[in-house]
């Protein structure tokens, strides 16, 4: 089963939940942890894996063979991103603007353009105890994270439990990270900011047709608004993590919440059992077939 942990707003404790779930699950089964928050991967700080291998992640970019180019300008015409410019038989490529769509090498009538690779980040593989740990890290100054997220997800085994730490927000990187997952856990905090961003995330997951539930982190008495919203919308509240300074301090030191008190281990075990009881979604099975 593939479970993604996401949140509309950053800093709600998404990584805390993801790492603790992986930790409690590892006691009884095979777990893979995919850190898809590739702009700021933090799972490794909490789970402390030892990495044994790293691969470079690349995207496709055009390489022009000047001798074959006649300066027809077709490549510039097809490119929607201004990434390739043909000027008096000289063709300039701006790799950072390129989306790797393949248009230019498909249209070039003289086969002057070949597909080549450009590195956008690193994918590292390792183990955190019994947990298989895979992390994507986007290179600095690189704008496009979805292709890297897609490649991190390709490292998921077909069996066993897969925990995906999604990027925060509600735009392309999140969409990529929850594609083909069975269930999404949305982590929120009971403040007006948290609630507003939770609603955005819920809207997105509904459009994408994902199944999801909510975990309320730093729960205080004032969470009324968030609970009421979930009730009205028929959204499951899967767990509440209390507002506990000990948790904030453990997190600040880079430690798992499970270590704070035995009760937390029980909380995450119950959360995991609840999500796993939902079983794999039909949609994700269909998604695999399509590919």
């Amino acid at each position: 089963m593939k479970i993604a942990i996401a949140s509309g707003k950053g800093g709600t404790g998404k990584t805390c939940v993801a790492t603790s779930l992986a930790f409690v699950a590892a006691a009884s089964r095979r777990v893979t942890y995919l850190d898809c928050d590739v702009e700021e991967p933090n799972g490794a700080i909490l789970l402390k894996p030892s990495f044994e291998e790293a691969r470079s992640a690349t995207v496709s970019v055009p390489r022009v063979e000047p001798a074959l180019c006649t300066g027809c300008g077709k490549c510039t015409e097809v490119c929607q991103y201004g990434a390739i410019l043909s000027l008096n038989r000289r063709v300039l490529v701006f790799p950072h603007l390129c989306h790797g769509c393949g248009g230019c090498w498909l249209v070039c009538p003289n086969r002057a353009i070949r597909e080549s690779a450009r590195e956008i980040g690193q994918i590292s593989f390792g183990w955190a105890g019994e947990i298989r740990f895979v992390q994507g890290l986007l290179n600095l100054g690189e704008a496009m994270s979805p292709p890297l997220i897609c490649q991190v997800k390709a490292a998921a085994p077909s069996a066993g439990l897969v925990i995906i730490d999604s990027p925060p927000g509600t735009t392309c990187p999140v969409i990529e990270s929850v594609r083909d997952v069975d269930y999404v856990i949305l982590v929120t905090e009971p403040t007006p900011f948290g609630l507003h961003d939770l609603k955005m995330a819920v809207d997105l997951l509904r459009v994408l047709g994902r199944r999801f539930g909510v975990v309320i982190n730093r729960a205080r008495e004032t969470e009324g608004l968030t609970s009421r919203y979930c009730e009205e919308e028929g959204i499951d509240i899967l767990a509440r993590i209390p507002d506990d300074r000990r948790v904030a301090e453990a997190y600040s030191r880079g430690e798992l919440i499970c270590g704070v008190a035995p009760a937390y281990e029980g909380l995450f075990a119950a959360l995991l059992a609840r999500v796993e009881s939902q079983g794999p979604s039909e949609r994700s099975l269909a998604g695999v077939m399509e590919r």
Partner: peptide, 30 residues
């Protein structure tokens, strides 16, 4: 948040940037 395209677009051409951080291992890294 992050370091990807919305952030790059947020800071390009700014006269100064204030980075708001907190004392956690993860925030230091970020």
């Amino acid at each position: 948040p992050g370091i990807g395209c919305p952030v790059i677009a947020s800071i390009t051409g700014a006269n100064a940037v204030l980075i708001v951080t907190e004392p956690t291992m993860t925030a230091i890294h970020d």
